[in-house]
Simulated assay, not measured.
Amino acid sequence: MDVLTEVVESVRTGRPSSVRTDARAPWGLHMRGTGFHVVLHGSCWLVDLGGAPPVRLAEGDVVFLSESSDHVLADDPRTPGEHVAEERFDGPSPIRSLRVGADGPRTRLLCGTYHLDRARPHPLVGHLPTVIHLRTGEHPQLTAAVALLGSELEHPRGGSDGIVTALVDSLLLYILRAWLEEGRPEGAAAGWAAALRDPAVAPALAAMHDDPAAPWTVRSLAALSGLSRAPFARRFTALTGEPPLTYLTRWRMTGAARLLRETDAPLSAVASRAGYGSEFAFAKAFKREYGLAPGRYRRRATG
């Protein structure tokens, strides 16, 4: 997998949940969670209950909320949001449906919630802005994905449940790629956005993600970049915020933690796939990174 895909997969857990909403003014929905909202038809307002100014969302807009914060979607910023009980959702489909409001102008939405592991997020994900607002007309691939979603939801046929679920699952990657390509990231996220495109750093990142168990050194990674050892190390550190081998260790431990959570692979196999020749050396490195021995981490994560 490419670096962006692996970064997202390293923090995403489970499957996203989604709701198709048919709303007629006046209406307001009080929500909480990490996820996205797509305006399929009409318009609405996003009101951050943390105090940020309301944001108007037009047809085709996508907004991604990277933190589990309280917010309201409504026909008007002054319309209060209601909490919706579980029994209000209709249908056995993976994409649930909801009707709210009265008989005013219509808005159709697709809202999805992702489950992200915030315990030790990858720095690219950890430095996302609270709200990412994208206009799909400026991003052809994202526009196409939203159009496919809208078509499948409006005219479901055989296979629609699987198609819609896959598109919702992929939408996070479309959103992050569009945001990175817009060139708007700031701070640490800007460094990572540049690192993924940098002709010297990107090949080294790809190599570490492709084969984290390889005996990488700063010299061997620099050889991939076309730079000598010292300039490469400075450039890598400036863009990602940490030296190459520090990042490599972090990525190895991230992969090991996923194996411990999601598989029953023996510790010797996990250690080998993380690039360690002995369980003892691996356990020592893992505990230094996570504060727990691998076995205890597995029991806590799966218990």
Rank of each mutant, 00 (worst) to 15 (best):
F286M: 04
V125F: 12
Y297L: 13
A301Y: 11
H71K: 10
L98K: 02
Y276N: 00
A213S: 11
V72I: 14
T254G: 04
D76V: 09
P94G: 08
G60W: 02
G183D: 05
H133E: 04
A265G: 00
G51K: 06
D2A: 10
A188D: 10
A166Y: 05
G159H: 01
Y174I: 00
S43T: 10
G226K: 08
L29I: 14
R78N: 14
F36Y: 06
P16G: 01
R250T: 09
E6C: 02
A74Y: 02
E289Y: 06
G28K: 00
R197E: 15
I163C: 12
W45G: 02
T136F: 02
E87W: 14
P294F: 10
S97A: 15
A119K: 05
L196P: 03
A207T: 10
D117A: 10
P203S: 14
V125R: 06
V125I: 15
R12P: 03
R12V: 15
C44S: 01
L176E: 00
W27V: 10
T254E: 05
W45N: 04
M208F: 06
V62N: 01
A269G: 05
P199Y: 13
E289P: 02
R99K: 12
R88A: 15
T113W: 15
A214M: 13
G277T: 02
E182S: 15
D264C: 11
A144T: 12
E181N: 14
D264R: 15
L173Q: 04
T136A: 14
P123A: 05
R300A: 15
A223E: 11
W192S: 03
G50P: 07
R184V: 01
D198K: 06
L239C: 02
G159Y: 04
A200Y: 13
L245K: 01
G51H: 00
H115F: 13
A301D: 10
G33Q: 08
E87P: 08
G42H: 08
R177K: 11
R20W: 14
L149S: 06
P26G: 04
W251E: 03
W192Q: 05
G50M: 07
E242M: 13
S18W: 10
L109E: 01
S228A: 12
H83S: 15
G126C: 06
P121G: 09
T302P: 07
S18F: 09
P92I: 00
P294Y: 06
T165P: 07
D70A: 14
V39R: 01
H139K: 12
A23G: 08
F282W: 02
G277S: 08
L29V: 13
R96A: 05
L116A: 12
V201Y: 13
G187P: 01
H71D: 09
H30P: 08
G126A: 10
H122D: 12
H83D: 14
G112L: 07
S278N: 04
P80D: 04
V168P: 03
V8A: 04
L173T: 08
Y290W: 12
L260Y: 05
A256P: 03
A274R: 04
P185S: 10
E67N: 03
R135K: 11
H139I: 00
G104V: 05
V218T: 15
P215F: 11
A214Y: 14
A189H: 09
A274Y: 00
A195L: 09
L98H: 08
G277P: 00
R118P: 07
R120K: 12
G91Y: 09
L248Q: 07
A301Q: 14
A233H: 08
I175C: 03
R299Q: 14
P26A: 01
V38T: 05
